[in-house]
Design a protein around this nucleic acid. Sequence first.
DNA 1: TCTGGGGTCCTAGGACCC
DNA 2: TCTGGGGTCCTAGGACCC
Length: 420
Amino acid sequence: MQRPIALIDCNNFYASCERVFQPHLRNRPVVVLSNNDGCVIARSNEAKSLGIEMGAPWHLNEDNYRKLGVEVRSSNYTLYGDMSARVMKTLSHFSPHQEIYSIDECFLGLEGFEDRLESHARQMRATVYQWTGIPVSIGIAPSKTLAKIANRAAKKNPESGGVGVLMNHASQDVALAKIALTDIWGVARRLSERLEVMNIKTPLQLRAADTRVIRQEFGVVVERIVKELRGEACIELDEAPATKKSLVASRSFGRPVESLQEMQEAIASHMSRAAEKMRSQGLATANIIVFMDTNRFRPQDPQYSPSQTVNLPIATSDTGRLVAAAMKGLSAIWKRGFSYKKGGVMLLDLTPASAVQGSLFESPDDPSSMARMAALDAINRKYGKGTLVYGTAGKKREWDMRRGYMSQAYTTRWDELLKV
DNA sequence: TCTGGGGTCCTAGGACCC
DNA sequence: TCTGGGGTCCTAGGACCC
C-alpha cells in the first residue's frame, strides 16, 4: 500500500477563530475583512450561502449585507497566529511526521495507520475541536495533490463527517470526475486555459495525459501534478522547512499618499516592521527592494509602480541601517504628481544573522570587531586589495567592480574572516 | 577581429499558493 | 471615498567567464 498523507485544513479559519471567543457568532453569517476593512478574506458557511464572495470589496455591498444580519470583524492576525499554533500542536500528537503548510493547513504522514485511517482522522477532528474550538476537515490520499482533493470532497459532502479518504483508484476516479481543472492544487486560470487548448479539459484527462508531452509543453511542475494525480507521491513531506528566503512588509494606505514626507514615514515604518520580523527569525539581509503603487483600480488616473533595489555593504538586521537604505531607494524612484495607494519593502536573500554577527561594520568599538578589522587588513595584504566584501543570500559574493560574481579567492577570504 | 561550446550568475516576470 | 498581504518556484535572456 502506498504511504497515506493527510491534509488537515481549518474550516473558514479566521471566521472560526472569531467564533471561539464570541460564541454568539455560531450559526450566524460572519465575515472577516482585510486591512483597512477593504475586502472579504474569510466567510463562515452561512456567509458563503448569502453569496458573499472571497476577496469581494466590502464597501460595494456593505449596507445590503448588514441588513441581512452579517456579522463583520476586522482581522486580528495575532489572534489567528496564536490559534494556529494551538491547532498545529494538537495535530502533532497524531503523527511524528508533520509539515505545517500555512496558517490553517498542515500535512501529516500517516504510515503505520493504514488499517485505521478513517477512525484516526475522526479522532483528530474531535480532539482539535475539543482542545481549540476550531473545526477542521481532513483528506487522506497517497499524494499531497490527491489529499487536497480528498479534503475538498470532505468539505463539500456533509455526510462525510469532515473526513475524506482516497486511497484507491475507484474512489479517486469518482472524486476527480466531480471537479474542474482549476480545483487541482497548482492549476489556476492561465494553466487551465493552456491545457484546454491541448484538449485536456478535465482532471481525468490530465491524469491520463502523456507525461513526456506534458513535460515538453508545460515543464516539470505540471508533470509532477500529473504523477501526483496518479497517486505517485512526488512532493515530499517537508518536515523542516528551510528558513524564509524573503519577506515583505507592505500595506495599502487608508487614503491616497501624495507627499514625499508621508511616503517616507510609511516606508520607514514598514521597514522597521520588516526588520523586526527578520530579527525574530534570526536573519539578516544585504539586499532590499522599496516599492510603491498608484491605485490600479483607477485606470483613469496616471499610473506609476516603481521599485528600487538597494544593496547594503554587508548583511544586517539593524533597523536604522535598513531604514536609511530604504530612504535612499525611495528617493531614487519618488515622483511627485501621483496619488499613491500602496507602499512597502521587501527583504531579499535572507541569511542567518550569526554569519554576519560582530562583523566589521556593525560595531567598531567591539574588541572582536577590531580583531576582524585587523584580519581584513592582513587578508588584503595577502590577496591584494580592490575588492569590496558583500555577504548576502547565505552565499558569499564578491564585487570587484568589474565582474559580478563569486570566486574561489573570495570564498577563502570570507572563511578566513569568519574564523576571527 | 572573428569564431564557438559549455558554463554561471543575475534580473525580471509569470504563475501559482494561502 | 471605499478593492489584502503575504510567500515560492520556474523560465528566459543578457552578461560574463574559460
